[in-house]
Write a protein that binds this DNA or RNA. Structure first.
Length: 384
DNA sequence: AATGAGCACAACCGCCCTTGG
DNA sequence: TCCAAGGGCGGTTGTGCTCAT
C-alpha cells in the first residue's frame, strides 16, 4: 500500500544494539517515559529509528522481562496455548508473565515446534500426523466442538490481551504522574481483566490486588475454589483446584451485571461488545454448551445447558494428553523418535483395537488441559 | 587449528489495526 | 467519512556461538 516508512532510514543505525545505546534508551525512558516513539531517538540522542527503539525496549530492556531458559511450566503453557490460539504470540504472551511475544515466538520456532514434529505431531494442528486416517464422523463432530471452543476462548483471550494493553497504558500513565494512583477505597477494584467477566472472582484475590504501583503483576484469570462441591469439601486447595466458570450464557444481563459487580469495568463490557459476544448469546451459549460437552464428554447425552449451573473443569487432566508426552520427552530425554511412534499410537495414532476411543480420550484430555490452562492461567499483565 | 553445519536469538520488515485530526 | 501517523503483530533474516568433522 506504499505506507511511508516509519522514519527516514538515511543515516540511521541498524543491527545489534550497543550497551551505550541501551543505556541511553533506558535512561531516557526512565526519566521521560517513551512518549512518541518516533520522536524518541532524537530526544534520547540515538541514531535509531523509533520503531527499533520500541522493539529494543519491549523485547529486551523493559525491566519486567524475565530472560533465560523457559521452565517446564512455561513450555507447557506455550504448547497448550498455541494449540488453542495458533501463532498469536502476543495473546500467548499475556499468559506468560515476563515473557515477550518475540521470545515466545523464537522459542516456539527453535525448540517446541521441532520437538512436536519430531514426535510425529503436527505443530500446526497439534494432532498426530496420521490423524487423517482416524477421521470418522464422531471425531469430526468432536473436532467441530473443539473448534467452537477454540473460537470462544480465542475471543476471550483477545479481549484479555486488549485489557492487558489498556492496563499497561494506565500503569504507564500513572508512573509518569499523568493519572492519580488508585485510592485506598478503590484499590479493591481489580485491574481490567477478563477474569472479572468470565470467572467468579475470588474476593480475596480481588482485594489482594496491590494496584498499580505496587506489585505490578495483576491477577486476571482468578481461580476460585468450589465451595459447594459435595465431594471436595474437605479437600485441600490443591486437591480441589476446580475452576468455576460463571454461567454467563443465560442472559446478557447476567454477564453485564457480573461485570459491574466484579469490576465495574465498562471497558471490559465494551470489549465484549466489540467482539460481538454479548450480542451473540446464541453463539456464546451454544459454544459454552459445546465447551461443557467437550469437557464432560457426554456429547450425545446432553440436555439443555443449565445457565444457573457453573461448569467445572477438573485440573487433574493437566497431567495427561499430548502435551505431557512432549514435556516428558523433554524432561527425561527419552528417545523421542522411537517413542514417538508409541506415543502417537497411545495418543490415538495407533492401530490397536480401540484406538478410536483412545484417540477420543486423549483428545479430550489434551483439550481439557488446554482449557484448564487458559482458564487458570495467572495471566499477569506485564506492566509498562 | 580450520571450517562448515546447525542452532539460538536479537533485530528487522512489512502488513494491518487503531486513533485522532 | 477519509486519511495519515503511530504502534502492534507475525514472519523472516542476520549474526554470533557451539560443536562435530
Amino acid at each position: 500500500m506504499g505506507r511511508s516508512p516509519c522514519c527516514d532510514k538515511v543515516g540511521l543505525k541498524k543491527g545489534p544494539w550497543t550497551p551505550e545505546e541501551d543505556q541511553k534508551l533506558l535512561a531516557y525512558i526512565e526519566e521521560h517515559g517513551h512518549g512518541s516513539w518516533r520522536a524518541l531517538p532524537a530526544k534520547a540522542g540515538l541514531q535509531r529509528c523509533g520503531k527499533s527503539c520500541r522493539l529494543r525496549w519491549t523485547n529486551y530492556l523493559r525491566p519486567d522481562i524475565k530472560r533465560g531458559k523457559f521452565s517446564l511450566q512455561e513450555e507447557q503453557t506455550i504448547i497448550q496455548l498455541h494449540a488453542l490460539l495458533g501463532n498469536r504470540w502476543s495473546a500467548i504472551a499475556t499468559h506468560l508473565p515476563k515473557r515477550t511475544d518475540n521470545e515466545i515466538k523464537n522459542y516456539w520456532n527453535t525448540h517446541l515446534k521441532k520437538r512436536l514434529a519430531k514426535m510425529g505431531i503436527d505443530p500446526v494442528t497439534h494432532k498426530p500426523k496420521n490423524d487423517a486416517l482416524l477421521s470418522s464422523d464422531g471425531q469430526n463432530k468432536n473436532s467441530a466442538n473443539l473448534s467452537h471452543m477454540a473460537q470462544w476462548e480465542s475471543a476471550r483471550l483477545e479481549a484479555e490481551a486488549r485489557l492487558v494493553r489498556e492496563s499497561k497504558l494506565r500503569s504507564h500513565s500513572f508512573q509518569l504522574g499523568l493519572i492519580p494512583p488508585p485510592s485506598a477505597s478503590s484499590s479493591s477494584v481489580p485491574p481490567p481483566a477478563s477474569a472479572s467477566a468470565q470467572f467468579i472472582v475470588n474476593k480475596t484475590s480481588a482485594n489482594n490486588w496491590t494496584g498499580i504501583g505496587g506489585d505490578l503483576e495483576s491477577p486476571t484469570s482468578t481461580v476460585t475454589f468450589s465451595e459447594n462441591n459435595n465431594n471436595n469439601n474437605s479437600a485441600p486447595p490443591m486437591m480441589m483446584s476446580m475452576i468455576e466458570f460463571v454461567g454467563s450464557s443465560g442472559s446478557s444481563d447476567h454477564q453485564a451485571s457480573l461485570i459491574k459487580e466484579e469490576g465495574e469495568n465498562n471497558n471490559l463490557q465494551k470489549d465484549w461488545n466489540k467482539l460481538g459476544l454479548e450480542n451473540s448469546l446464541s453463539f456464546t451459549s451454544s459454544t459454552l454448551h459445546h465447551h461443557d460437552m467437550a469437557i464432560s464428554m457426554e456429547a450425545a447425552a446432553e440436555g439443555p445447558w443449565n445457565p444457573d449451573e457453573s461448569f467445572r473443569v477438573n485440573n487433574s487432566t493437566m497431567e495427561e494428553g499430548f502435551t505431557n508426552l512432549l514435556l516428558n520427552d523433554s524432561i527425561g530425554d527419552r528417545p523421542s523418535l522411537s517413542d514417538s511412534g508409541k506415543d502417537s499410537e497411545n495418543s490415538g495414532g495407533g492401530d490397536g483395537g480401540d484406538s478410536g476411543s483412545d484417540y477420543y480420550q486423549d483428545n479430550k484430555n489434551y483439550w481439557n488441559s488446554i482449557l484448564n490452562l487458559v482458564n487458570s492461567s495467572p495471566s499477569t499483565s506485564p506492566m509498562f
